[in-house]
């Protein structure tokens, strides 16, 4: 079966990518790519292990990496010199 090999490749790709994170936004993009790779790996594992329940875990992965990126843009990586006032408060 080709699935296990496929997901092994995806994990290796994720590992290499995590190994070097250039700047703040690039690290966040790396985390998002890792989330997508995680979704793919879980889907392939669900096929390989014959467990349909794992599809729910993939759904949660897909939802939450987007949440992390959105929070990063809204809260941490604010617009630099002109300091816009609208995105400040909780």
């Amino acid at each position: 079966m080709v699935f296990a090999l496929v997901l092994l490749f995806a994990v290796v790709a994720g590992l290499v990518r995590i190994l070097k994170g250039p700047t703040a936004a690039d690290r966040m993009l790396a985390a998002q790519l890792f989330g997508t790779c995680g979704v793919a790996i879980i889907l392939l594992l669900a096929k390989g292990l014959d467990a349909v329940v794992l599809l729910d875990v993939a759904l949660v992965f897909a939802l939450l990496t987007a949440l992390a990126t959105t929070t990063f843009v809204r809260r941490t990586w604010y617009a630099g010199p002109e300091e816009e006032g609208s995105d400040g408060e909780f």
Binding site: L64, T65, A68, T71, F72, R75, T76, F90
Partner: peptide, 12 residues
């Protein structure tokens, strides 16, 4: 990963 990560980012 999903809740604690964004909470950490906000806290940061």
């Amino acid at each position: 990963a999903g809740i604690t990560g964004p909470l950490f980012l906000a806290a940061l």
